[in-house]
Simulated assay, not measured.
Amino acid sequence: MPASFKLPYIHLQFPDLVAVEQKVRNYCLDRAHRERKWVGFLEHGYGYQPRDSIVLASQITGALLGKFSPQEVVATSSGELQFSVGVAIPSTTKHRALLTTAWIAEPAAGFRLTTAYINGALPEYADALPAYDPSASIEDAWTAIVERANEIVAGWTADGVWARPRVFIPRSGSTQAFARDLGCVSQ
């Protein structure tokens, strides 16, 4: 019997960029972490600069703003939906790095990144939407991300299936410094 999983409030289902950045920084690029995900990222030029966690997070979440194919979709015992998405990001050593990202979806919450690692084993990969030059400064990186987001929104048309792409960055609490760095909060 086929199963279904309904995600109400589809406009709330986008990944939280701040939470993804924290996961990337504290798990994927953390050289002290026992899982050693950072090794694969380092081979593609990520993990050398403090800005790399922001850049990777924006690329990973950006890929989910376009069309992507969920892989390995399963319902968890707690009623959430778990799935993988292949994401292709720019690489400094090869044309691109192929990531496997794993997500948890639950009603009325943004997709939650559970892991991301270099692995070319999935059948399909979504391109990271923000164009980014890995040698760019953090200011240039964010400028490119914002420009690409504006292009996506300008070309967006409502079709009843795809929600309007957006990046939500809270401007209070623990994310206030991050938002200030991006220019979302006055100094």
Rank of each mutant, 00 (worst) to 15 (best):
A163L: 02
I60C: 00
L64V: 02
R34Y: 09
S4C: 12
G173R: 02
T92A: 07
R148S: 12
C184V: 15
F14W: 07
V24T: 02
V74W: 04
T115F: 01
D16S: 15
I60G: 00
A144L: 05
A121R: 14
C28S: 15
A108S: 10
L99T: 04
R171S: 02
T143F: 06
E106Y: 07
P134C: 05
P134D: 05
G79V: 04
P15D: 10
V24N: 02
T175N: 05
Q13E: 12
P165W: 03
Y117R: 02
N119M: 11
G155V: 06
T93C: 08
G66I: 09
S137V: 07
E124C: 14
I10L: 12
E139K: 12
R148N: 10
G120M: 08
W142T: 07
Q71V: 07
A141L: 04
L99S: 03
A126C: 04
Q82G: 08
L129G: 05
G40E: 07
S135V: 13
P90S: 10
R171I: 01
D52E: 06
S69D: 12
I138C: 08
T143Y: 08
V74P: 00
L7Q: 02
T157R: 09
N119D: 14
T175R: 02
L99V: 05
L64Q: 01
Q176H: 05
A116K: 09
A131F: 12
A131W: 13
S174L: 11
R171D: 00
S174M: 11
A179G: 04
I104M: 00
Q59A: 09
F5P: 07
D52F: 06
W162Y: 11
P2S: 08
H33G: 10
F83W: 03
T100V: 15
L113G: 03
S137T: 15
D159K: 00
P165K: 00
T93W: 05
S78M: 10
F41S: 01
G120K: 12
A141S: 13
S4G: 14
T76Y: 01
P50L: 14
K37N: 15
Y48C: 12
D16A: 15
E151F: 07
D16V: 08
S84C: 09
R34P: 12
A75E: 14
T114M: 09
A131T: 15
